[in-house]
């Protein structure tokens, strides 16, 4: 009887060891994807560029394109905002729609007042999001967004950051991304699919 227990314990230990080893190997080979590792669309309460409180409910009802940037960004942020509004306009002509969100990774400088100047410049239908640094950074972390201050001088600083556009469907569910270097046509096809326009044709 004792023998059986000992064998059972050893067997269980071997099994547990094998399982954790296989888990370890699997993690090395298959890093977890953005959707499972991060909590995109998880609840938050921040401030829109209009000064109003904004929560994850803003991502419901219409498909969304979400970009993390900052107003001291000379190139990729204005380019992405311009590109997204052009794609959105094209989508609207085709009968679809898209809400565009710009979430700052620089809440210290990007106050509501700063976003109020910046966001409407790129046209209507864009919502800027800021808040306390802790709350904004928590959201960025949940979305798996990278940001890091660099070139910190008396003139200010720059922020290296994730330049990916996150796509959410009308239920606020993460569906994919648009990469900075993707062509306009590929980006448009993704938005068409997001707006269910591809099923109508």
């Amino acid at each position: 009887m004792k023998k059986i227990v000992v064998i059972g314990v050893i067997f269980a230990a071997v099994l547990a060891g094998a399982y954790s080893l296989s888990e370890f190997i699997a993690r090395q080979i298959y890093p977890q994807s953005a959707s499972s590792q991060f909590q995109l669309g998880s609840p938050f309460s921040l401030v829109a560029h209009t000064g109003k409180t904004i929560t994850e409910q803003a991502f419901e009802g219409t498909p969304s394109a979400v970009f993390f940037g900052f107003t001291h960004c000379p190139e990729v942020c204005p380019t992405t905002m311009n590109d997204l509004t052009l794609l959105r306009d094209r989508l609207r002509v085709a009968g679809g729609d898209l809400n565009i969100f710009f979430i700052t990774v620089d809440p210290e400088r990007d106050t509501v007042a700063a976003l109020k100047d910046y966001i409407p410049y790129f046209g209507g239908g864009i919502t800027g999001i800021t808040g306390t640094p802790d709350a904004v950074h928590e959201l960025a972390r949940k979305w798996g967004v990278f940001w890091q201050k660099n070139n910190v001088t008396e003139q200010g600083y720059n922020i290296d950051h994730t330049a990916t556009v996150f796509l959410l469907d009308k239920n606020g569910q993460f569906k994919g991304t648009i990469d900075f270097h993707e062509s306009e046509e590929i980006a448009y096809k993704k938005l068409e699919r997001l707006a269910d326009l591809d099923k109508q044709s």
Binding site: N150, N151, D160, H161, T162, A163, T164, D179, F180, H181
Partner: peptide, 12 residues
């Protein structure tokens, strides 16, 4: 500017 693995980096 360098775009590396989805991250936009800038170096003076």
């Amino acid at each position: 500017m360098k775009h590396e693995e989805g991250i936009m980096k800038m170096a003076p």
